[in-house]
Amino acid sequence: MTTMTKTLSASRARFVPALFAALIGVAMITLTGHVQAAALHDAAHDVRHATGFPCH
């Protein structure tokens, strides 16, 4: 039982940072590639085209 709890909490301890890392990643891609706010769009314009994001 103790071993099981340990294994469970160990995998949870790794799963949570992975989830947070992935979420930060999605947020960054959304900001640099997708948000249409004028300032962001203009600054990221060339990158969005060159990286194949839907731009205008």
């Binding site: 992975a18 890392a21 992935a22 930060i24 960054m28 891609i29 590639g33």
Partner: peptide
């Protein structure tokens, strides 16, 4: 700068997986 941010975002997802 935005290319670096974009690929850092991609890398965060990749490393998570």
């Amino acid at each position: 700068i935005f290319t670096m941010l974009t690929y850092t975002g991609y890398t965060l997802m990749l490393v998570a997986l």
